[in-house]
């Protein structure tokens, strides 16, 4: 859970920073998207780098999901009887890890159909990510799905980063506050960065 989670977190940071290119206009954004396909040339062929990243991410998602399933099954079996006097436990981010993760996984499918294959995108023109982004965020459902998913991602990262640090043995009483703060900052910055794009399209800053 920890290793695959951190790998996906690193990807999310790069993805969020890349998204901000949208604020520099269609030429910058589309040029950046084209550059992504040329990374590693001439050692790697066109788009090979992108496909290596895609396979790495797919492996991370699958392993993360399988571990989550195994852990959940074990945890639910270890506590078969609930307390009659129920009490609200742990933080919201902690309690929503399972369903939040499922929501994020479903969003990834939608997101790929929307902006990678263009299947569900109102425009869906290959090689024109800027125009496709504006098209999807001009729809109410595109905005709603994206905003809900990004809030789920933020909550998932908030508990996930901190937990991953504990699992890998990086936690100590002295470092507890610093790790919590890093988790909160990562969650906030990533959520804000991702949300800035649909908000900019909705307010007309990007069109």
């Amino acid at each position: 859970m920890a290793v695959t989670g951190l790998a996906m977190l690193l990807y999310l940071i790069a993805h969020m920073l890349g998204n901000l290119k949208v604020f520099f206009g269609p030429d910058e954004m589309n040029g950046y998207a084209h550059w992504l396909r040329t990374i590693g040339e001439p050692v790697l062929h066109h788009e090979w780098f992108l496909w290596i990243v895609r396979f790495g991410l797919l492996a991370a998602v699958v392993l993360h999901g399988v571990s989550a399933y195994q852990l959940s099954r074990r945890d639910l079996a270890a506590r078969p009887v609930k307390y009659a006097h129920a009490r609200r436990r742990a933080s919201y981010a902690t309690r929503t890890m399972r369903w939040g993760g499922v929501i994020v996984a479903l969003f990834v499918v939608w997101h790929l159909l929307d902006l990678t294959t263009g299947t569900v995108n109102p425009r869906g023109e290959s090689g024109h990510p800027y125009e496709n982004i504006v098209a999807t965020f001009d729809t109410w459902y595109g905005d709603t799905i994206y905003i809900v998913a990004m809030l789920a991602v933020g909550l998932h990262i908030r508990h996930g980063f901190w937990s991953a640090a504990q699992t890998l043995g990086a936690g100590s009483p002295g470092r507890a506050r610093a790790l919590k703060a890093t988790a909160n900052i990562l969650a906030l910055v990533l959520t804000a960065g991702f949300l800035s794009v649909p908000l900019a399209v909705m307010t007309g800053v990007v069109s």
Partner: peptide, 11 residues
């Protein structure tokens, strides 16, 4: 022993 795994809930 059948104890569950840790999810760092902190309880």
């Amino acid at each position: 022993e059948g104890f569950g795994g840790c999810t760092l809930a902190g309880e």
